[in-house]
């Protein structure tokens, strides 16, 4: 199935945009289900649309742009994992339920030993997927306690699990794990690009309307130049994102992207708060929500130090073997 990037973006914006920034969680979850987004990346023979990473990126950009709350990233990853492991008895039923919006847990933390952390909306899920480099299991959630984050658009839980059924081992598990990790990095990067773009637009609008010294703030070159640098950061991150949505993209390509995109979002959101002055420090103004989401995106799924180090090591090895 072929749908252009623009079509996806437009339909995503139409679906979510009308609800404004940070729409109520339940309402946007229903929309995601209605629009069939959880079936988007599901192969056609599993009843999905069979769209690739480009479509995922387009949707996550819009989710980030509107600060849509909820566990969409985890849900899409869980669905993707179900599709990429070998068939097992309950698979079709689980998949159908997840596509229909029934929450399936999954940790967004990079390292998953001991207590499972960073599982979004685990209180609303009865089961979760536990991913490891050579083992993927389906587990029952025994207890979930929320560990409240500054970013109020995500609700993350520490989870104790009960019974586990291994659904993939060895090479199968490894492939599914690397694929899930890659998609996690792509999703967080796209979310960051969307958020950065939105908070930049907001800052430009503000500088054009706010007047001091009898002129719009936007006339001050010290501020224009900072805005121009923010724009360059966002455009560069987005260009890199689109160049990483092909099918043959490897983990280290996404590693460098994750580091660059989430770091750019942090920088742009920091500048946005500063450029708004006092109003930027008030809870009524949405600036801080972008700042908090930016920092959470940077921390989830391995931080910039981790992924830059990884990318550097791989690049060094590649240069040697050339």
């Amino acid at each position: 199935m072929m749908i252009s990037r623009e079509e996806l973006r437009d339909s995503a914006r139409k679906g979510l945009g009308s609800d404004g920034l940070m729409p109520p969680a339940d309402q946007s979850w229903e929309r995601l289900v209605e629009m069939g987004w959880f079936a988007m990346a599901v192969p056609e023979d599993h009843g999905g649309l069979g769209l690739g990473p480009e479509a995922l990126a387009a949707v996550h950009i819009e989710l980030g742009r509107a600060l849509v709350p909820g566990p969409a990233i985890a849900q899409m990853l869980a669905i993707d994992v179900l599709c990429s492991v070998p068939d097992f008895a309950a698979r079709d039923e689980l998949l159908g339920a997840a596509i229909g919006g029934q929450r399936l847990g999954l940790s967004l933390a990079l390292h998953q030993a001991g207590t499972l952390t960073c599982v979004p909306d685990a209180d609303q899920a009865s089961q979760m997927l536990v991913l490891g480099p050579d083992r993927i299991a389906l587990a029952d959630i025994a207890s979930a306690s929320q560990n409240a984050t500054w970013d109020e658009t995500r609700r993350l839980f520490d989870v104790e699990i009960a019974g586990q059924t291994v659904i993939a081992n060895g090479a199968d598990a490894h492939d599914a794990y690397i694929r899930a990790l890659s998609r996690l990095l792509l999703a967080l990067s796209a979310d960051a690009v969307g958020g950065a773009d939105a908070v930049l637009d907001m800052s430009i609008e503000y500088l054009k309307t706010r007047r001091q010294f009898d002129r719009p703030l936007a006339l001050f070159q010290a501020l224009k130049h900072r805005v121009a640098d923010m724009k360059i950061a966002v455009v560069a991150a987005e260009a890199l994102l689109w160049s990483r949505t092909g099918d043959a993209v490897s983990l280290h390509d996404l590693a460098a992207l994750k580091a660059l995109a989430t770091t750019s979002f942090c920088r742009v959101a920091e500048e946005a708060v500063q450029l708004h002055g006092g109003i930027g420090l008030t809870v009524e103004h949405p600036c801080h929500r972008f700042l908090k989401r930016a920092y959470l995106n940077a921390a989830l799924g391995g931080d910039a130090d981790h992924w830059n180090g990884f990318a550097g090591r791989v690049a060094l090895g590649q240069q040697k073997s050339n």
């Binding site: 910039a304 180090g309 550097g312 090591r313």
Partner: peptide, 8 residues
Amino acid sequence: RDFGALTG
């Protein structure tokens, strides 16, 4: 890390 960031 710095080399990785530069690569990106």
